[in-house]
Design a protein around this nucleic acid. Sequence first.
DNA 1: GAGCACTGC
Length: 771
Amino acid sequence: MSRHHKENPYLAHRMPQHGAEDEPLFGFLPRKVTGAQVRKALQHDINPFTKIPHTPRYKEMLEARRKLPVYAQMDSSTRWCVVVLSFNKNQIIVIVGEPGVGKTTQIPQFVAYTDLPHVKGKLVACTQPRRVAAMSVAKRVADEMDVQLGRHVGYSIRFEDMTEPGTTFLTYMTDGMLLREAMNDPDLNHYSTIILDEVHERTVATDILMGILKSLAKKRSDLKIIIMSATLDALKFQNYFGIQKGSLAPLFKVPGRTYPVEVFYTREPEPDYVESAIRTVLMIHRAEDSGDIKLEADDFANQDSDSIGPIVCIPLYSSLPPEQQQRIFDPPPKPQRPNGPPGRKVVVSTNIAETSLTIDGIVYVVDPGFLKQSVYNPRIRIESLLVSPISKASAQQRAGRAGRTRPGKCFRLYTERDFMSELEEQTHPEILQSNLAITVSALLKLGVRDLVKFDYVDAPAPETLMRALELLNYLAALDDDGNLTALGSVMAEFPLDPQLSKTLISSPEFQCSNEILTITAMLSGEANVIANSHSVGFLLDFSVPNVWLRPNNQRKEADAAKALLTVPDGDHLTLFNVYNSYMQNKYDRNWALNNFLSARALAQAENVREQLQRNMERSELELVSITDEKKMCTAIRKVLCCGYFMQVAHKEGNMGNYLTVKDNQVVALHPSCGLDTQPEWVIFHEFVLTTRPYIRTATDVRAEWLLELAPVYFDIATFTDGETKRALKRVVNKQAGRSGRVERGTRRPKRRISEEAVALESMMLSFNLYS
DNA sequence: GAGCACTGC
């Protein structure tokens, strides 16, 4: 895609209607612009990008911007234009500053003024770890620049591209989105400057982007890179991005402007942070002056207070629909009677509000000291969302949120001793504790050859890399030398887990890609993973949106509605049936609600399906259907085996017990499962551990299909002795008898581990990781 | 006989 430029400030003096000096960008040379010039252009009456006179609102907002600490870096007479100057001089710079100093909104604007990306037909991109942040910041910046959102300033997140090719020169985007773009254009040629924001959050996408940008900087000397962090661990990034070993990338610290926050600790550790949080909030409400409260936890129950003044609790998390998210900006409730005690607003938030979102008026912060994060255990190959302690850096961020408007207070629901001695200094990088299957295929797709030697900011554990390589190898996405196969390359194009990707890509061969596309969309909605630190086990869910509603007072009706939509051969087929019925009823919300289905989950599936369909068209994968319903169902069940042959369970005895293949975990079908019998073999989408281990979203499959479609994984020689192995053997012998052959023992399994994996394996042995 | 909303593509 080529982005041609429309407005060239070099040519400004040729325009007849203004004198040259009237042009706001007169004399601006890209990357040679000074802070003083930028300041002057900002105060000009004409918008340099739209050539329209500025609105009064622009001037008002400019006044407010001038008060931001980051503005002073450009505006002060003693250190004027340090940021701009350094940007001009260096290829990579690091900027740190607390939330609220204006990094995210102002720096990209300064960069746009000195880099002048529109002159070159390029863009300045600023990444954010979260969609909400990308959207809301883009809106704010478009307002500040007096342009329409989606034109000169835009944003780009999944399902929503608010940019206009050829016009947009500043765009905010999620880090995952930029990573996707890098897969198709490894040199990121659209961009003149890339700003990675909130790098302290250490999301997997940001970490990988840091790695590829570091090497891309050598290749593309014209590319400028800015690393922005809200915490003071800048040295790590300065070191990482130093031009030579031992040298540091230049750093800019933007001093904060927040008010002092008094921090209180509990005297004793609190056994129940939810109960303790509620108590603290009510205490604040009774005893403290007016001012809203932000509570970071994951559960909060409103409790009747005595007649102190109304209190309103507002939840905040990312998957909340935007209009509900807006509620956090509502004013606190009015007193119940004239001159009565003032009302108070309590925002109960996940760590989305830690840095990404700023709510004015918050004076009190209650910090239970936990966050939910997904943690991958490579030994049992399970990723689960766990409640774990936050880092000191996070605790400081949280406290800082109380001092935005005036001096505030932060109540930490843990002891000072725990803070000092138990909390890690910095947030643990996500890449060190996640399932790397998607990451590994992304890196390979990005052209990284050697996954071990890749220049990670923090290198993941060899065992985790090994697990990822193994999974991708089984799925035939990697060959035995660790290279991406043609299949693997297509798989990486899809925003899906490798198992789902493989299933979808295999579907045209079975003439049912339309159907599998629907099922895939239904399976890949919002993440929905829960773990509880109090229970012995944990609950795991491979991201199934729950389409089934079951209101407490209408359970019977809900169950009856579900029974009508259930297909007895398997839950995957039921999901297909649900979506089809929804489609036949013209995507009607009310139909969904009348049938106790979540309209949001269905709308989400609709979105995902459209996106995946575009992906399939781009990859030239045929969209086909089988008309015969029975054949279609069989084909669907077979295709599922292509991607999920590692998630199979075999029935043991008649007590409803199943044993997962190879891992030998005793599991049961989840009570929500719609299978009318207990089939001998089932394929399942998720494993959940609540009151007992369950498998959920299960479908009846046949051993013959598994042997045929996943011969390597189902090589009998690789099974330990037991009922599963005997059952497989019976099927093999029956097949051999039918074809007149006699199976003589079993073949040795082909070695499926690449050289790289062997290297990893020996490394792991030397680290004693197998012990 | 079942829940319980980290984030992203």
